[in-house]
Write a protein that binds this DNA or RNA. Structure first.
Lengths: 221, 221, 221, 221
DNA sequence: CATGAATGAGAATTCATTCAT
DNA sequence: AATGAATGAATTCTCATTCAT
């Protein structure tokens, strides 16, 4: 599909404003209404561009989603890679991870919601694309746990359980925000995210400790 | 809308087979493709009923989703209520909670996925409906934490952070399953869920311990 | 269509309450929304009967309309016939006609609206039925004009012009009522219809006088 | 509703042929079958355009009706305004009015039928729209009567009676045409409309004379 | 007599995309 | 590079009627 020639300029260009506007509109609308519920008309209107531009720049609605997920995931991967590189001590790693991930998710909360919400969804068109991203993400978990001080010989199934758990701890706030906002009076300000970072760190630290006690054959370092 | 008269029999009746088939089809398809991506045609075909039956029984596609979410949530609430009733000791409560919640989510994993995935989505028609369910859920958290041994005077914002975290720990596996299945060779058998229960218990126990240390003014026995 | 056996009881029967309720509901709804815009559901709900009763008693929605038009027209014909019988003098006839027609239309204003509004409409199912009623009505005009003092030898085309004119003078008020009510503060009370009768009489009398002058070869005794 | 963007070019353009064809088809079908009984399918087929074009150009079926009524009414208003301007003598005014209105209704007989037939109908969607058009029309009556030589101090209720009467005299022929055609052998040719104009003039003139006698405080020259 | 579940055709509208300009 | 008119398939929901009970 969408085998038409389309401009594939990577250089930042003031003339890309329309292309970017489409992406921004997609992020906003997909996160609010879900991919399938958003029409190209909505995106075009939100981005203040002609409808045809979506096909033109991204080859269609799915192309917009792919671009969003792709760039979100590669930024997130890069972030994890950096944290892994600079952290040699498990507690330090967890602290660094949360310190980096929370602002990242705060900055990209809409993308995180899209990522989470569209993840299990089999949308035929981009299913394989998403599956690949997810496999990459899950493989990231291996690295993370090796540095988080979890048992070295931990079997795959454990990673398959703990990985999603920790990942979801990190973004569950953003997923639930539309409702917690009203119910618990949460406001997205710096003060709140300071508290949030501490809580997530505490949860993860406690979880890791206990996992080591229960599943670790040998403490690490 | 939905002002049409529709049969509203609550008693189980062999003649409800069609009504139930629609619900089952909805659960399957919504969890696989997402609400907005599923058409009434798909549901009708999956359930082997006439398309009109969906409007007839549930007043429309949204009605099917409402019914799914509603019954899922009330069953879950009931489960939490029971656990709260029989558990007076925090560690016992956590153990009981996980022991009950894991089989429940295993049994209703599709509904859990729908719940999670449609939660942040603003679908206009059922937005308020979902918001109400979520508020109820979040208020359940208060009860849970009071029994989990978390600091009594814990402020609302903390509940708004820890609640979603713990909830997502419980169902993140089901959300990620479509991918973890392939990547980590996870199979949904009894043996796996035995392991899963232990891991989740360990994570939660560790998290609660650490939260008490960091945020508890007074440790609870 | 609707060749099924259906009860055709003409005798007034307390058990006909449902049948009558359907008719009343049809009159109300057809006059308010137009025949095509009203569904059998609406009628059934308005009449507080089961949907099937409409097919059962009248053979379908069209049957209800036929019954309404048929009974309205035969009552109107009967009224005209009586007036014609008792009026031998043109001015007396006009006076009698208006005196009888105005209360009749007042009483059956909804039916009159249906009659007027559905008249030019080609609804395929009942087209021929309506055409027949109209032909009967138009032939009534001949009698009327013979008594109204209009030229005896008046050609058919003149009747075809004056007939509709006079008929529409009589019911135009009811057709316009929904708007004149608001704009001219007209209230449907006895006092108003007293005035209304006078005005209509005046218009018709003046019109007949002038028509005699212009088109009458010989005045009629 | 109808918040969609739609092309709104007012200048006549050869490319508007499809838009116009839809309007023409709407006029034909609405006048023959009534608004509610006509489907967009019918309109599209009659106009030889794609079904979607109706929503595209007019925002839906109701939009087509609105356009028809709107343009019909504004043309009629303009016509009345012109007649009022050039006629200072009551008999001259009536003569001018009929001379202009009859060809106008002849030309726009289908629109007149739609106007008359849809007028009392409460179609929820366009009810307020129609009400506004009608109020404007009724207010036109005031001007007309002031020029028709009717009593100056005539109260609102009288206008509310005479207005509809005179208006319906003008178009009743077109409303009844489908039946008078068969019954009275009326053919829509120039000769007939010559006769028609004379008859209508005669009726109106006679009516005005008599109304002056009965309701006028002072006879007008 | 009366019900109401069930039907399948048909309703209006919106969809993502294409293509001539 | 950009437009927007045009398409026809697909969308959800409602329709009048039937039929087994």
């Amino acid at each position: 599909m969408a085998e038409r020639t389309m401009p594939d300029k990577t250089e930042a260009d003031p003339r890309d404003s329309k292309k970017d506007a489409i992406l921004e509109a997609g992020i906003k609308l997909f996160s609010e209404k879900g991919f399938a519920a958003v029409g190209v008309r909505d995106i075009a209107k939100e981005a203040n561009v002609n409808i045809s531009m979506i096909s033109y720049y991204y080859g269609g609605k799915s192309g917009v989603l792919k671009e969003i997920l792709s760039s979100f995931f590669s930024e997130y991967s890069e972030l994890i890679r950096k944290i892994v590189d600079i952290s040699d001590d498990p507690p330090v790693f967890i602290s660094n991870l949360v310190d980096a991930a929370v602002p990242f998710f705060r900055e990209h909360s809409r993308q995180a919601i899209i990522f989470a919400v569209e993840m299990p969804v089999d949308s035929s068109d981009i299913t394989e694309f998403k599956a690949e991203k997810m496999r990459n993400l899950l493989n990231l978990f291996r690295k993370v746990f090796a540095h988080a001080g979890l048992p070295e010989g931990m079997e795959d199934r454990l990673i398959g359980i703990i990985g999603p758990s920790f990942f979801s701890i990190l973004f569950s706030h953003f997923l639930f925000y539309p409702v917690t906002e009203q119910t618990f009076g949460i406001r997205k300000n710096d003060e709140f995210y300071e508290l949030y970072r501490n809580v997530v760190k505490t949860i993860m630290t406690g979880a890791v400790k206990e996992l080591q006690l229960s599943f670790g054959r040998t403490g690490i370092s």
